[in-house]
Design a protein around this nucleic acid. Sequence first.
DNA 1: AATGAATGAGTCTTCATTCAT
DNA 2: AATGAATGAAGACTCATTCAT
Lengths: 192, 192, 192, 192
Amino acid sequence: MPKVGMQPIRRQQLIDATLAAVNELGFAEASISQIAQRAGVSTGIISHYFQGKNGLIEATMRYLLQQLGKSVAEIKSQVNDAPEQRLLAIVRGNFTAPQTDKAAMKVWLAFWASSLHQPDLHRLQQINHYRLHSNLKYEFMKKLSKDQAEKAAQGLAALIDGFWLRGALVSGEIDPELPIELCSEYIRQQLK
Amino acid sequence: MPKVGMQPIRRQQLIDATLAAVNELGFAEASISQIAQRAGVSTGIISHYFQGKNGLIEATMRYLLQQLGKSVAEIKSQVNDAPEQRLLAIVRGNFTAPQTDKAAMKVWLAFWASSLHQPDLHRLQQINHYRLHSNLKYEFMKKLSKDQAEKAAQGLAALIDGFWLRGALVSGEIDPELPIELCSEYIRQQLK
Amino acid sequence: MPKVGMQPIRRQQLIDATLAAVNELGFAEASISQIAQRAGVSTGIISHYFQGKNGLIEATMRYLLQQLGKSVAEIKSQVNDAPEQRLLAIVRGNFTAPQTDKAAMKVWLAFWASSLHQPDLHRLQQINHYRLHSNLKYEFMKKLSKDQAEKAAQGLAALIDGFWLRGALVSGEIDPELPIELCSEYIRQQLK
Amino acid sequence: MPKVGMQPIRRQQLIDATLAAVNELGFAEASISQIAQRAGVSTGIISHYFQGKNGLIEATMRYLLQQLGKSVAEIKSQVNDAPEQRLLAIVRGNFTAPQTDKAAMKVWLAFWASSLHQPDLHRLQQINHYRLHSNLKYEFMKKLSKDQAEKAAQGLAALIDGFWLRGALVSGEIDPELPIELCSEYIRQQLK
DNA sequence: AATGAATGAGTCTTCATTCAT
DNA sequence: AATGAATGAAGACTCATTCAT
C-alpha cells in the first residue's frame, strides 16, 4: 500500500464516504466514526486531511457543487446558442444523474438545512443559489427585457428547486422526465 | 402556582420555545436544555409532557402543519368557488405570515431535512406534501382533464415549494409579492 | 440520597478528588474521568457543577489559596502585635499542615507550572504571590525603612518559597522545623 | 543533503525546538508535532533520534542541567579559593543568563513539576537539587561546623531557588541584581 | 536519513433521559 | 406539577507511535 501521495486518493475516499453516510444515516447521525468506517480508515485520518469534521463537510459540499456545475456545463456544451436550448440544457443538467440520485438529493437537503446555521456552508450554498439564477437570467435576457428576464429566471429557478425539493422529500425514486417537461413548457411560455 | 390544568399551557410554551430555539440555533443545536431555558422551565418537564425530545419535536411539527392548514383555510373561506380564485387562495395561504417568517421557514427546512431519517416526522411531512398537491389538483380538475390537472398541480406545487425553499435559503427577509404574482401567472397559463 | 442542595457538597467532593488525583497522578494525568472516579461520581457531573474541567481546576486552586490564607490568619490571630512575632506567624502559617503535606506541595507546584500558560490560573497565582510579599513588607516596615523593608520582604518571601519548592521536589516528607528555624533567624537578622 | 553525521546536529536542533515549544506553549501543549514543526523536521524523526517523546524531554532536561553546570563552573573558575568568593560565584552562576531567561525559568519550572511523576526526570532533578546543596555545604564547611554549614547551605539553597521560583512566576523580566545582593548579604551573615 | 501516512487509545464535552424529592 | 441532580454513552478531536517508502 503506497505511503506517499495518498492525499487526493484519501480525500476523495472520505468525501464519498461522507456522502454515503449522510445518505444512509442523515446529516445528524453522520459521525466521523461512521464516515471513517465507510471509508475503511481510522477516525484520526479525517483531521489529518481535513482539519476536523467541518473541513470534511465543507469539502464534500464543494464537491457536490462542482459535480452540479460539471453536469450543467457538459449538457450546455452539446447545444447551440438558442436561449431556449440553453435554458433547457441548464434544466437537464440539474435533473441528470448523479443530481437526481435519491442519495444526492438527501445530501443536498441536509446541507441546505445545516447551511442556515453554519457560515462556511452558507457561503457555498449562496454561490450555488445565485449561479442558477444568473445563468437563467442571462439566457432569458437574450429575448426578454431585463425586468421580464428577472421574473422568468426567478420563476424557473423556483420551479427547478421546487421539483428538486419535492423529489428529495418523496419516498420513491425520481423520474426526471416530468420536471423536465414542465420546466420546458414554462420556458416556452416565458419566451413566447 | 397552579397545579392543575397546566398541560395545554405548558405544551404550547414548550412548542414555542422549540421553534425559537431551532430558529436561533438550528436544529442540531436545539438541545432540550436550550429549549427548556427558553421556556423558563426545567429539562425534566419535557419528558413529563412529551415523553422525550422526539415527542416534542413531532408535536412542534404538527403545530406548524396546523398553522399552515389554518392559513390556507382562512384565505380560501374568503373567496368564491372559482378555481382560479381558490388556487390563488392556496398560494396566498402558503405565502402569508407566519409562514413567510424567516424563522418559520428555517424551522420548516430543518424539519424537512430531518424528516428524511425520522419515520415519525416523515409521515407528517408526507401528509403536508400530498395535501398541497391534492388540493391543487382538485381545483385544477374543475377545468382541466385529469392528466392536465395532475401536471398543473405538480408544477404549481413545485413552484410554491421552490419559492419557499429559495426564500428560506436567501439571507434577507422575504417579499411574498413576487412569488404570489408568478404563481398567479402560472395558474392563469394553466387554466387558459 | 438527597437530590436537592447537593451543590456545595458535590463541589467540595470534586475539589478534594481533584487534589487527590493531581497528587497521585500529576497534573497531566489528572483527567476528569480519574477525578470523577475518585469522587465516586460520573464525569458528566463535573460540567454540571463547574462548566468543564477548567472551572474545576480553577476552583481547586482557589480553594488552596483560601486554605493558605486561613492557615496564616489563624496563626497571626494568636500572636501579639510585635512585628517579629507576626512575621514568624506568617512563616508558620506557610509551613503548617495542610500546607506542608506532600500532596498539597505537589499540587501547588503543578498549579504554578500550569499557571504560566493559563491566564485564569495565573491571575490567582499572582494574588498569592503579592499577598505574601505585601504581608511581609507591611510588618517589616514597622521597624525598617521602606527600602530596607522591601528587601527584607523579598528575601524572606524567597526563603519561604524556596523551602517550599525544595520540599516539594525532595523525596520524603517535610520537616517544617528547619525552614521555620532558618526563617526565624533570617527575620531576627533583618530586624536587628 | 547530508546523510551521515547528522545525529548531533539533529539532536541539538530538536532540543532547541523543545525548549522553544515548552516556553511558548507550556509543557502540556508541547506536542511532538509542535516541536517537529519548530525544528523544521517531520514527527517521525523524533522517535528515530530519541526513541520517543520521553527520550527527547529527558535529553532536553539533561541539556539544561549541563548548561547550568557550565555557568557555575565558569564563574567559579574566575575567583580565588575564599569560601565567600566561591559561594558568591555559585549564586552568580545560578543567576546568569541563560539561566535567568524567562524562557529557561519557565522550562525549568515545567520540568520540575513534571518530574514529580516521571521517574527519569525525577532522577535528573534530584541530581541538580543535591549538587547545589553539596556545593554550598562544601564551601560553608571551610569556615563553619558541619552542623552550621548544613543549615547555611539549606538556607542559601532555598534562597536561590526561591528567587528563581518567584522570578519564574512573576510577569516581567528578571533583574538578577537584587537576588544576588540579598544572597551575598546572607552569605556574609552566615560566615560572620 | 527522513518523511508523512495511518492508527487507535484517550481527552473533554454534550446530551437525552431518569428519578428522588 | 415541577425541579435539578445524576448518569453514561457518544461526539469530535488530539496525540505519540509505528512503518512503508
